[in-house]
Design a protein around this nucleic acid. Structure first.
Length: 466
RNA sequence: GUCCCCUUCGUCUAGAGGCCUAGGACACCGGAUUUUCAUUCCGGCAACACGGGUUCGACUCCCGUAGGGGACGCCA
């Protein structure tokens, strides 16, 4: 039987990093097995629903390059609501579900009692065996399922193993609300069944729900999917990953200059492993991804490791792609690139990309090509001042160099340093670097000079000396 | 409170009873390379939560304790 997985986010307005990993795992498993990866939006909560919120999720998925099948169609839980209602009515007709006329106040009291008595099940099943003839006037009932009262239920989970819970911990939960709309618990089961989902990979926080969902599967005599509950991602301090830990949504990571393939590699290794392999590009991940490589314990998010992976993938990225990324980054900054500066950056990229951990950093480091320094930082000023007396000599060097390319230029500087600066290379190179970039750190400076050419180099030198 | 899950270096993890003197990666510290900063390369520091069992032998199996997390909605 072919594998069918699914990713069912609710449109909350942003794509949480944990959800992104869930999507990745579902996608990988489908791709690995040659199965199908489906997309469904859990949009039954109409108050929260908006088209924009859905788009945000889809954008996140597209950015991560996790494509879904079924010709790109997206299932809508809301659109299937009639089917969910029909199923509930079937259960009602079969005597496997019943109307419950409890008021919210009654329920609240039951909750208090349950808690006081140290029970986890809340509802006391008072309407389970009463007929609708006893129904109070004017109360709209909910539909509840008849869950097993005795014994225990076991969930066979691919990650957590066999998890056993006593049935008395569960109560007769709601299928249809008093306004007739289906609850999440019912809808997931029906949709998963109708979509032919064979493997449910989702966050650990759903493990408890699984017991309830299985009650529905059993009542309907449907075959249950294979479950794999993924451990959660925690913040660096071990608590739930929240705003104060930094970026929560994939969109923010994109903003910060992370590459999607780096995100995928990092997220994959957060909770999944294959021996000692660390650098796992996506095609390799598809080849290797098995459920038994999933770890059971929650993992803490580590920005430093993400950055190091990102640096790795930046080095691998083509200069053409990097140019595109830089272009959008500079647009955000309102910095306009001319055909000339564009070319300079492109030529400088081989040196630049070895140094950056993020696209944002890359843009920072490349920006001296785009704009001549308008000011000099403290260290640069000092370098310029310390070498004030030999600045004219450096200028002449630039002006008269017979071959304005990196190596001969460097040789000329070395010779000059030997003659005019007691052999101290730094004394001539640092002010030169400062003049060209406005800073005392930069990519190899003679290469940069070669790229910008004699004219620009001279102009910057003059500006620095002014 | 009740139920469920988890626990190896600071972090992500390898480890399926002897292969473990517990391995790798990131971070950190040192060194080499280098015109700067990086990169790269070499080296170092650093962990089986605790207590009981089982076994000839336990990081690996069992029980308990502690700590962490999750779930207990007419939300999803």
């Amino acid at each position: 039987m072919s594998v069918v997985t699914r990713f069912p986010p609710s449109p909350t307005g942003f794509m949480h990093i944990g959800n992104a990993r869930t999507a990745l795992f579902n996608w990988l498993y489908a791709r690995h097995t040659g199965g199908t990866f489906l997309m469904r939006i859990e949009d039954t909560d109409r108050e929260r629903y908006s088209k924009e919120a859905v788009e945000v999720i889809l954008d996140g998925l597209r950015w991560l390059e996790l494509d879904w099948d079924n010709k790109g169609e997206i299932y809508s839980q809301y659109e299937n609501r009639q089917r969910h209602i029909d199923v509930a009515n079937e259960l009602l007709a079969a005597g496997k579900a019943y109307y419950c006329y409890c008021t919210p106040e009654e329920l609240e009291r039951m909750r208090e009692t349950a808690r006081a008595e140290g029970r986890s099940a809340v509802y006391d099943r008072r309407w389970r065996d009463r007929g609708p003839s006893e129904a109070p006037e004017g109360v709209k009932p909910v539909v509840r399922i008849k869950a097993p009262v005795d014994g225990f239920t076991v969930v066979h989970d691919k990650v957590q193993g066999d998890v056993k819970v006593e049935n008395k911990q569960l109560d007769d939960f709601i299928l249809l609300r008093s306004d007739g709309t289906p609850t999440y618990m019912l809808s997931v089961v029906v949709d998963d069944h109708d979509m032919g989902v064979t493997h449910v990979l989702r966050g650990d926080d759903h493990l408890n729900n699984t017991f309830r969902q299985n009650v529905i599967y059993d009542a309907l005599e449907w075959e249950k999917p294979t479950y794999a509950h993924l451990p959660l991602i925690h913040g660096p301090d071990g608590s739930k990953f929240s705003k104060r830990h930094g970026a929560q949504s994939v969109a923010e990571y994109r903003e910060m200059g992370f590459l999607p393939e780096a995100m995928r590699n990092y997220l994959l290794r957060l909770g999944w492993s294959h021996g000692d392999e660390e650098i796992i590009p996506t095609d390799r991940a598809v080849e290797l991804f098995e459920l038994d490589g999933i770890n059971k314990a929650a993992a803490k998010f580590d920005f430093a490791k993400l950055e190091s992976l990102n640096a790795h993938y930046i080095k691998l990225a083509s200069n053409e792609r990097l140019m595109g990324l830089l272009d959008t980054e500079y647009q955000k900054r309102g910095l306009k690139l001319t055909p000339v500066t564009l070319k300079w950056i492109f030529l400088g990229l081989d040196d630049l990309k070895d140094r950056a951990k993020t696209i944002v950093q890359l843009a920072d480091e490349a920006s001296f090509y785009a704009i001549a320094p308008r000011s000099f930082n403290d260290k640069a000023q000092k370098a310029l001042a310390d070498s004030a007396e030999i600045l004219p000599g450096i200028r002449t060097l630039i002006e008269s160099a017979p071959d304005f390319s990196a190596e001969p230029l460097e040789q000329a500087f070395r010779d000059f340093a030997a003659r005019q600066a007691d052999g101290k290379l730094g004394k001539v190179i640092m002010p030169f670097r400062a003049a060209l970039t406005g800073a005392t750190t930069s990519p190899p400076i003679f290469k940069a000079a070669e790229i910008m050419g004699r004219e620009e180099t001279l102009a910057r030198m003059d500006a620095a000396m002014a």
